[in-house]
């Protein structure tokens, strides 16, 4: 079973003469444990594709299946609890890490667990364990502003992983990092995909980072123009 199935998905903004096609007939699948990139320049539609899979942006046509659950079939499937799906099945990593500034590193991870109704004690234990596994054991009580870019992104990864999601969606996770930190993050994502058997879909325009991916989909003007196998 695929972790992500995108079948002939189209997203059109606006109507009539002002209609803009952001994604056009995109189709691909991602297996559990796979690290896949969607590569393309700004405005190519890669983030729109990510947000459609992330249950944020409703596709106009086509079908999306996440972890065996059909979430969109010519629009959202009626009666589907999108928030719950996001909580339980998906993990998000952002370009600017998007850590909550008034929470410590530990609390930033805990909050994702508590939203999923984990008891506070259990959430704390699990968050601590996760952060220590990402070499952030010394930074548990630090606020995001006191963390380096690489540390903050690792906390964000820990938050995304906290709930052991089947799918992790990353939006330009290395864009705010230098090359070395960016490569470290990519290596971390690769190892997590294998260890946790999660599908990781990364949107990026950064050609420096393509080495570690299992597969790469290149997007231009809303269409997937090429699929290549990466060095990963």
């Amino acid at each position: 079973m695929y972790a992500i199935e995108v079948d002939n998905v189209t997203k059109i903004y606006g109507k009539g003469d002002t209609a803009v096609t952001a994604i056009s007939h995109a189709s691909f699948q991602v297996r559990p444990g796979e690290l896949v990139a969607i590569l393309g320049p700004s405005g190519s539609g890669k983030t729109t594709l990510l947000t459609a899979i992330g249950l944020i942006n409703e596709p106009t046509h086509g079908r999306i299946i996440v972890d065996g659950v059909t979430v969109a079939d010519g629009g959202w499937v009626p009666g589907l609890d999108l928030k719950r799906m996001r909580r339980e099945k998906l993990g998000f990593i952002f370009q600017a890490h998007n850590l909550i500034p008034f929470l410590t590193a530990l609390e930033n991870v805990m909050v994702a667990l508590e939203i999923n109704n984990f008891p506070s004690g259990e959430a704390k234990g699990r968050a601590e364990q996760l952060l220590k596994s990402l070499n952030l054991g010394q930074r548990l009580g630090s606020y995001p502003m006191a963390l380096s870019g690489g540390e903050a992104q690792r906390v964000a990864i820990a938050r995304a992983l906290a709930n052991k999601p089947r799918v992790i969606l990353a939006d330009e996770p290395t864009a705010a990092l230098d090359t070395e930190n960016g490569k470290n993050v990519m290596a971390l994502l690769k190892s997590l995909a294998v260890e946790n058997h999660s599908a990781i879909l990364v949107v990026t325009h950064d050609h420096r980072m393509v080495e570690g991916f299992d597969r790469i989909f290149e997007v231009r003007d809303g269409s997937i123009i090429r699929e290549t196998c990466g060095a990963g």
Binding site: G54, R87, F92, F94, N98, V111, I115, R159
Partner: peptide
């Protein structure tokens, strides 16, 4: 922060 919370399913 609110958008992030919503995105992670809050």
């Amino acid at each position: 922060v609110i958008a992030t919370l919503k995105l992670i399913g809050s």
